Amino acid sequence: MRLAGYLRVSSTGQLDGYGFDVQRADIERWAKANGHKIVEWFTDAVTGKYDAPDRPGLTDAVQMIRRPAQAEGIVVGKLDRLARALTVQEAILALVWREGASVFTAEDGEVQQDDPDDPMRTAIRQVQGVFAELDRKTVVKRLRDGRKEKAKTGRKAVGEYAYGFAGQGQGRERDAAPEPTEQAAVRRIVELRESGASYRVIASTLDAEGHKPRRAAAWSAMAVRNIVQRQEQQSG
């Protein structure tokens, strides 16, 4: 059977070590053992509160099974990779089944469609979804409580640090520390701004000189502006 492979990680899901590489390896082993072919891979890195409506990878995977179908089903490593919330899980399954396609997990094989003569089938699946959702919410609460406790010590309460800084230390001792490479870029930004350069000119200069932004491929005027404003607030 031709299947679309779908992988998802999230800010909380990474804690269980079930990242993209592990999910893909599980799916590939399962597909090979059961005679299926993965025709295309789709991924989503979900953060915060977002779920299905904001997952382009899942949307594209579902499009693969719409008529005229390019795949006969979708496969995930585990059912909780399909969705974090039970309601979303059930909605996605219903959508795929309505298109005449199938959903598989590398963990348990095909997710069987609802059968009025076998209500226990649906109940078991939904109970599994409930506990998966409970587990996620428990992890989120634990992280939130940890951030609150850390904030009481005067340290930075979240894992993301401003450009120019990186996390240093472990557990409650973890806090922001200067990151040399990024600090050099910050100093260059300040220098160019003080000379009268515009944000756009600064961005182009940073790219030309080899200074790298944290995530993007190139600097933007907005990214430069944010750093300049932060520096001004700190100096003010």
Rank of each mutant, 00 (worst) to 15 (best):
L3S: 01
L7H: 00
G13T: 03
G13H: 05
L15S: 14
D16Y: 03
D16I: 04
D16P: 02
G19F: 03
D21L: 09
V22P: 01
R24Q: 15
D26R: 14
I27F: 07
R29L: 02
R29H: 04
A31I: 07
N34H: 12
I38P: 09
I38G: 11
V39I: 06
W41R: 13
F42C: 08
T43G: 09
V46W: 01
P56T: 14
A61S: 08
A61N: 09
M64R: 10
R66K: 13
R67L: 02
P68V: 01
A71M: 03
I74A: 03
V76H: 12
L82P: 02
L82C: 11
A83N: 15
E90S: 13
I92S: 07
L95T: 15
V96P: 02
W97V: 06
A106Y: 11
D108K: 15
G109M: 15
E110Q: 13
V111D: 00
Q112I: 04
Q113A: 14
D115G: 11
D117R: 11
D118E: 11
T122N: 07
Q126A: 10
Q126F: 04
Q128D: 05
Q128P: 00
F131E: 01
D135I: 02
R136P: 07
K137R: 14
K137W: 05
K137P: 00
V140G: 01
R142V: 03
L143A: 08
G146T: 09
K148F: 04
K152H: 03
G154M: 03
A157E: 09
A157S: 12
E160Y: 06
Y161N: 10
G167R: 13
G169M: 14
Q170R: 15
G171A: 15
R172E: 11
R174V: 05
P180N: 10
T181A: 13
T181M: 08
A184P: 01
R188E: 15
I189E: 08
V190C: 12
A197E: 14
R200Q: 15
S204D: 13
T205A: 13
T205P: 00
L206K: 02
E209F: 05
P213T: 07
A216H: 12
A218M: 08
W219E: 08
W219N: 07
W219C: 12
N226R: 15
V228Q: 05
